[in-house]
Design a protein around this nucleic acid. Structure first.
Lengths: 330, 330
DNA sequence: TTGAAAGCGCTACCAA
DNA sequence: TTGGTAGCGCTTTCAA
């Protein structure tokens, strides 16, 4: 910037004005400065400029997701990006892989970078570690899971309801032996879905069989193994509720490999891009990711813009999408 | 930091040393400073600290992708992240949606943020606008498409070869009326795939029929319409080569809707997560995204670490993955 | 409309 | 082992 000022024969401050498009610089001087900028290939340094700025914003937000390569995280990221784009806010994305220690270190790293806000899909059970930063006014919006130990905005879906929708649907199609494949019960959503599954069964007059609830299933490959074990039971299930999309994918693969693709009913939780063209087309409980993403972006930027109202907890209602796999009869 | 220094009864510089874990501070002083840091909830400011640092790194890299929500972009992002994680480098991700103007503005914004390097899947035809920054030593690695008008590292696959693999395979299964659905010919990869398609046909003694080459098909929905038009021809194709994964998805949907799912052969370009469980399982030409991503990360960080050798142009070889849809006979 | 000086939060350099 | 001073690239404040 000093070089630009020298070349244009003006002061530092004038270059600053031109670069920031502040009013009150004569067209003549503006042109001279812009010529110097182009000639020297000068690039304005955003970090340095924000350092002295009153608000001290970095024009970055952090997106702390489960795994940017899964479709739920990726769509969330995209929704946030669409909103951030208009504001010239950059997004720093990182994946947790459900590792609590990574969450803390990533959040810490983002705070050190002075992000203006955070979208967080937590992997930890409690987020007390955020207390200081929240008190200092860092906007944080939780997604998919509610904050524990601190209070801040969240956007979630009603997981219990979603599970009941799935199980009710299977019951309505004549099933009584309904298995569930779910993630670790320590994960809030997995636990809520498990409870919804059990409550729907009881409501249908079926006592949940612990042998049919395969929990702590983490990956698609784990789900294949889990479904194999379920199918090998003496009294195997006639229907499966796969409580996360990657688990549903594993279940589909397992059923294919066993030649049971059109014989055992399957309902997934979370839609994914090709669920309508797998074989058979997958019936799912859908949480509308675009709606979630838009809601999150709205909250986050409202906070960044100074909204200091009490934390909002938005709970969205999932819906059943009927496609075929859930309508197979026992 | 001043407050921390005051509370701990030491100088600014000493706090700086403790915070940066520099050697040569007595355990006693270190403990005092750390207590003050905790008590005040002090957060080190990375931007400010890098401002004065010799190398002036921001510890951020930019990933300029087509669309973070598509699986190719998302996987690329993830591969880069895995490498960046070890180095405490953050990733700023943005989507282009194939819009050239966005590319320039995003790159400019990233340069203003002083990212240490750039992964770029360009939407522009030429990238002369990067010349200044490249000359200034900004590391940029192109992915999927080669740079035009400037020279810098790139990681691509042999698109012509990939298209020939697909068409040869269909020819080997008895097809002569082979259609192609492709993106805009102005996109380098789309053009290369079109040429590969034509050359494979000619090599098989089939004169390419322009009516069978549906180009400028942009989205999955466009692909549905395009396949409909192809199927409505007087002499419709018995096989389709879909030259991008979203186009293959559209083609699958169209074939399903027409009840031709197992009757018309289909080979896609680019694998995607569920290609093996769609109906029928999709035969594809695969470019291994993890390999690409790892290669990109390797190049990018090598440059950031000071590698000033001539630009590397890595060309990877795609492979045919046989799954069923490509082996349907006419 | 323009500029000079001080300072944002931190680190480099050199001295104690 | 510790601290003081200058300065990173920019903006703020106030004066001209």
């Amino acid at each position: 910037m000093r070089d630009v000022a020298a070349l244009a024969g003006v002061s530092l401050k004038t270059v600053s004005r031109v670069v920031n498009r502040e009013a009150g610089v004569s067209p003549d001087v503006t042109a001279r400065v812009e010529r110097a900028v182009a000639q020297l290939g000068y690039r304005h340094n955003l970090a340095a400029s924000n350092l002295r700025r009153a608000h001290g914003r970095s024009a970055m937000v952090g997106a702390v997701l489960q795994d940017v390569s899964n479709s739920f995280s990726a769509s969330l990221l995209r929704s946030l990006e669409d909103e951030a784009r208009d504001r010239d806010v950059a997004i720093v994305a990182s994946s947790l892989d459900e590792e609590p220690e990574r969450e803390r270190s990533i959040v810490e790293s983002l705070v050190r970078r002075r992000v203006d806000g955070l979208l967080l899909v937590p992997a930890t059970e409690r987020q007390d570690y955020l207390a200081d930063d929240l008190r200092n006014g860092l906007p944080v919006v939780f997604v998919d899971r509610r904050p524990q130990g601190v209070d801040t905005d969240s956007v979630t879906v009603d997981n219990g309801l979603g599970a009941r929708l799935a199980v009710d649907h299977l019951v309505a199609h004549g099933h009584r032996r309904i298995a569930m494949v779910g993630d670790m019960p320590s994960i809030q959503t997995a636990q809520a879905r498990l409870e919804g599954y059990r409550s729907a069964l009881r409501h249908a007059g079926v006592e949940p069989d612990p042998a049919l609830a395969a929990m702590s299933v983490r990956s698609s490959d784990d789900a294949i193994a889990a479904v194999y074990r379920l199918l090998d039971l003496d009294d195997p299930p006639t229907a499966i509720f796969a409580a996360r999309n990657s688990l549903a994918v594993g279940a589909i693969r397992a059923l294919h490999q066993r030649g049971l693709a059109g014989r055992v009913a399957l309902v997934g939780f979370d839609d994914f891009p090709l669920a309508d063209i797998v074989d058979p087309p997958l019936t799912v409980v859908r949480q509308n990711v675009r709606t979630i993403g838009a809601e999150v972006a709205k909250r986050l930027f409202a906070r960044i813009d100074g909204d200091t109202s009490a934390p909002h907890h938005v709970v969205l209602t999932p819906e059943l999408v009927v496609r075929g796999s859930g309508e197979i009869r026992p």
